[in-house]
């Protein structure tokens, strides 16, 4: 990888004077293929995730790096579409994520939302203490592929079952993949309501992509 590309990747976990978006724009204008820049960003975001897991970097670093990646991708999108010869862009997975009713532990959900975004998924983060029906309303509005339910509280988990029940009541069973995760959630619980299980934010990205693509 050239020095320029390495710098673009590194800017996600080791902020430079210029943002990843600015560096990407300069590289693009200098004739570097957009796909090569995407590869560099992907390598950078992988390294960011590793450093977060190893506790060399922390949640705010992860959030800032994720945002920088998104901004850089926005710069690259027109070139990527042109490179694809005007063909329809690859399908992008969309997901609504939020904390179940009564739960206000948002840090885990923020980590998940960031990891999903850096994984190339469109995320609508609808916050804490979300009513079961609201998850479905938001998924309908967004045209989502999946609904992500998070909870640290055992006593908020029954509301996950309500989401599944309301999907059935509204004739929407099967339209959305339902994924549950968070400190209180077990695989057994996910299975019991017919949902997918994300044991960690990182694994949830793979689970959602696999289910929706």
């Amino acid at each position: 990888m050239s020095g320029t590309l390495a710098l673009i990747g590194a800017s996600l976990y080791d902020p430079q004077d210029k943002s990843a978006a600015e560096l990407a724009r300069e590289a693009l204008e200098g004739g570097v293929p957009a796909l090569d820049i995407v590869d560099a960003l992907s390598a950078g975001i992988t390294e960011l995730g590793k450093r977060f897991e190893d506790m060399e970097l922390f949640l705010p670093d992860l959030m800032m790096g994720g945002k920088a990646m998104q901004e850089a991708m926005e710069v690259l999108t027109p070139a990527l579409e042109a490179q694809a010869g005007g063909e329809a862009a690859q399908k992008k997975v969309k997901i609504v994520v939020g904390n179940l009713e009564g739960d206000i532990h948002d840090i885990g959900r923020d980590i998940l939302a960031t990891m999903l975004r850096v994984g190339g998924i469109d995320v609508l983060n609808i916050g804490n203490n979300v009513k079961a029906d609201t998850f479905i309303d938001k998924a309908e509005e967004m045209g989502a592929d999946a609904i992500g339910l998070s909870s640290l509280l055992t006593t908020s988990l029954p509301y996950a079952r309500d989401v599944v029940g309301l999907l059935e009541a509204r004739g929407l069973t099967g339209k959305y993949k339902v994924v549950v995760g968070g400190g209180a959630v077990t695989k057994e619980f996910a299975d019991s309501i017919g949902a997918l299980y994300g044991s960690t934010a990182v694994s949830a990205v793979d689970v959602i992509k696999e289910a929706c693509l």
């Binding site: 009713e101 509280l153 055992t154 006593t155 988990l157 029954p158 509301y159």
Partner: peptide, 15 residues
């Protein structure tokens, strides 16, 4: 510890 069911019904936050 926490009771998660009463009479077989799940205990919900705020319920």
């Amino acid at each position: 510890g926490s009771l998660v069911k009463i009479e077989g019904m799940e205990v919900k936050t705020g319920g």
